[in-house]
Amino acid sequence: MSLARSDAPAAGGLLPDRWRLGRWLFKGVALVAFLYILTPLIFITWLSFYAQEIPSYPPEGYSLNWYGQALNNERFLKAFLLSAQLGVVATLIGLAVALPASLGIVRLRFRGRGTVNNLLLMPLIVPGIVLGFALYVFQVEIAIATSWPILGSFGGLVFGHVLLVIPWTVRLITASLVGFDRTLEEAAQNLGANRFTTFRRVTMPAILPGIVAGALFGFVSSFGNLEMSLFLVGPGRTTLPIAILQYLQWKIDPTIAAVSVLQIAIIAVAMLVTDRFVKISRVV
């Protein structure tokens, strides 16, 4: 047997040229799509470092000044705090109702189960602008009927945002519950754990990734919501997305770019941290 051959990869691929071309074309389109998604973020980041205020290309130089401007801008700061507060409160309330609801939907057999599930996902399907408007007139009617000053209140805003959080949390928690192997619960009970302990020590840790992911997605969809907040913020209050929109309708400059980059950075850090606990590729 004379098999003294070099182990160097053979020249030429497995595919004939025509197919190899096709494969490169396919990969090329994928790359274009990926860059396309990132393009706006790249350009806004670039702008935030321009030296001059007018966003004309090419930049006259580069500077970090605008980040100072952004951080000292009272309006953006207040808007950021409101958005963060709103997101946290809405997420906590949303989780509190979504976790039991998910358990009920996955574990119990009752009539109308499918309907309930669809209902809970509905806020994702109703257009934001429509839902915001509908909630606004709803609150108008409540205010008229009960003279309860709900219109434009923080509570009214939170209620709307809870609606945004519920579908995400229900969706992700039910998904992790469905994938949960129930013989683990039986094993725990066989080992002497009661139902509550079983839930706390076995079920909860197993579905925690789903809960964390649901909370993250819920928070972010509340934090980034524009359309609903437009209707529900009262006078003198703005959320960060509204503040950014209104500023951009007026002008674009490196200050707003810096604000945007800070927001992107916060979200990116949140995602990377979450990814350490729950693989994002498995939950989205």
Partner: peptide, 22 residues
């Protein structure tokens, strides 16, 4: 079957070299 491209060597079916065939 053609799903792994050998780093070296040849595969022949019926005397015909198919190593580079998809």
């Amino acid at each position: 079957a053609g799903f792994v491209e050998p780093s070296a060597g040849t595969v022949r079916i019926g005397g015909k070299d198919v190593t580079r065939l998809p």
